[in-house]
């Protein structure tokens, strides 16, 4: 070694890993910008829930019928805000499938960005889109003058929907790591429509046949849908709803972590 010119010996002092595993605001900003460039995602996650609300939430009977501390129109608005938020966060999470297909996630593994920091970026990005979706439906609600509940309940239900949609950011990540990019987005639209029906977002579960009701209670949107309506209905929390949410969160997050570890495919 001593015969080697000293200029060739690399000086590694002062070389350090980045703080927070590489997480930073520039990345978050660029990821959000990417999301806004995807017109189809914006339409599905923001425009569709608003159109649904304007089509189904403004029924004349709804604003005169009471539902807990508000009216049925408010109840429907919360359901459709949840539908939008869930679409948004699932899409946000599932974007990893596109990144995998383009070899970007592999490229990122050749940078200091830690897998945890990357997932945090993905989840935060998904939550930003989720917030836009909730806000869009709620603004449509305000402008339509139909939903009625106290200001506190607008805020409480809106926040519950938004935070609850985190469950589906994990779902999106799981699907994004599980499925190939070509059909993941179409498949998600279909899966979420089915889960929304089963979870009672479009039609109350109590109107299903008894057998279907029993099955529906085990699906991933059921518990969340019940919980986000609790502030409005004031009917107390059934512990099975919380169990439903926690159990599915464990399944989705665990599945995403498992698939992510296996993800070493080259493009």
């Amino acid at each position: 070694m001593s015969t080697m010119p000293s200029t060739i010996a690399p000086d590694l002092s002062g070389r350090r890993p980045p703080a927070l595993g590489g997480f930073n605001v520039t990345v978050l900003k660029l990821e959000i910008r990417r999301l806004t460039r995807n017109r189809r995602t914006i339409i599905i996650a923001i425009v569709v829930p608003v159109v649904f609300f304007l089509s189904f939430g403004l029924n004349r009977a709804y604003d005169s019928h009471r539902a807990g501390h508000g009216n049925v129109s408010a109840f429907v608005m919360i359901s459709l805000a949840l539908y939008g938020a869930v679409l948004a966060t699932t899409f946000g999470g599932a974007m990893v499938s596109i990144e995998r297909a383009q070899g970007w996630s592999r490229q990122l593994r050749l940078t200091p960005l830690s897998p945890v920091a990357y997932i945090v970026v993905k989840i935060l990005t998904a939550l930003v889109l989720g917030a836009c979706s909730v806000a869009a439906v709620y603004i449509a609600g305000v402008l339509s003058h139909k939903p009625s509940m106290s200001v506190g309940l607008w805020i409480a239900t809106g926040l519950s929907v938004w935070i609850g949609s985190l469950l589906f950011a994990a779902f999106g990540l799981f699907l994004g790591y599980l499925l190939p990019a070509e059909n993941v987005m179409q498949l998600i639209g279909l899966i979420l429509a089915l889960l929304s029906f089963a979870g009672g977002l479009f039609i109350p579960v109590s109107q299903f046949a008894q057998v279907v009701q029993e099955v529906a209670k085990w699906t991933p949107m059921y518990g969340l849908n019940q919980l986000v309506h609790t502030p409005l209905l004031g009917n107390g929390v059934d512990w099975t709803w919380a169990v439903n949410v926690v159990a599915w969160l464990v399944i989705f997050a665990g599945g995403a972590a498992w698939r992510m570890r296996k993800d070493t495919a080259r493009v």
Binding site: E99, G103, R106, P112
Partner: peptide, 19 residues
């Protein structure tokens, strides 16, 4: 890699088309 001491250029892919 976390210290930026190693980089790689791959033959294809590895770039996001929408950036």
């Amino acid at each position: 890699i976390s210290r930026g001491l190693v980089s790689a250029v791959m033959q294809t892919g590895g770039l996001l088309k929408d950036l």
